[in-house]
Design a protein around this nucleic acid. Structure first.
Lengths: 154, 154
DNA sequence: TGTCATCCCATTGACACCCATGAAATCCCA
DNA sequence: TGGGATTTCATGGGTGTCAATGGGATGACA
């Protein structure tokens, strides 16, 4: 299992297609569904994206517990209902639906940002703004790792 | 087994037919019954829908427990008795019975909402309202997953 | 015979698939 | 180590196919 990182800015062509960055595609290569699941989540101007499997696990983490519970209902309406299943074309591109273009403000370019187990899609200038905010708020960020088990490259 | 995602709004023609969204039909393609099971459940303005197989599992999960229990009896009266078996026509459409049109208020358009293991059918504006409620009620929904099993793409 | 549901076919618009191009990164070998 | 060859990637565009929709024809049933 891999981790999404890095920022990539790609062009949206006149058909509305964008290339998903190759490194991200490589992580998704083993997925049953060749494409991404994109949905709105918390950050109002960003689109969250992940694999189908991530979504299925998310579903199971709730519905094993209680299928018709309120918790599941909130999850469903906030995430599943707002999700878009975007298949790759032969070249690894997806087309962003109008709804996602609207909430992000994406027109000519889209920025892909790795965020670990998922990644996000932004309008580039909105992302730049968000990044500088983050820098100001945490200038002295320290990284703390748990010591990992012996064996395996780091 | 797959998960129903996304929201799709389709037109109801003058014969009362609506196309079930193609992605949903694809999930249902392996079902023994080519169509959907529709029933009212909890949400007063929504129709819950699923495959025949899901219905059978729902029954078993209760009747394994206790066939003549009050729980099973309630399930029978509330769900099975009010369920409609809606077959697809050649183009993947179903006809919504008058009873379901009435409780949902559906007239010209019907919105299909993926909710994970099932999906719902709403009158579009009623759905929009329900969604904004959900958004307000769960602003801090986390994407945290439970620790997952090894293997599988993320 | 009238009403209703099912089957079949037509239309249109979106998009999935195919191929082409150029740029950049990588590889390979002298 | 330098430079040509090869591969990968992002991008652009044409076209066939499929989904959503509409409507006519056929059959069941009262």
């Amino acid at each position: 299992m891999s981790v999404y990182f890095g920022t990539f800015e790609n062009k949206v062509d006149r058909k509305g297609r964008v290339s998903v960055p190759a490194p991200f595609r490589q992580i998704l290569a083993t997925s049953a569904f060749q494409g991404i699941i994109a949905f709105r989540y918390q950050a109002p101007e960003a689109v969250e994206a992940c694999s189908l499997e991530f979504m299925e696990r998310l579903d199971q983490s709730v519905s094993d517990f209680d299928l018709f519970s309120e918790a599941h209902d909130d999850l469903a309406f906030n995430i599943f209902a707002e999700s878009h299943q975007l298949p790759f074309d032969g070249e690894g591109r997806v087309i962003l639906p109008a709804a996602l273009l609207e909430i992000t403000g994406i027109q000519e370019h889209a920025a892909f940002v790795g965020k670990g187990p998922t990644f996000q899609i932004w309008e580039p200038s909105a992302l730049a703004e968000r990044k500088s905010e983050a820098r100001q708020r945490a200038p002295n960020l320290t990284l703390r790792l748990r010591r990992n088990e012996p064996g395996g490259a780091s």
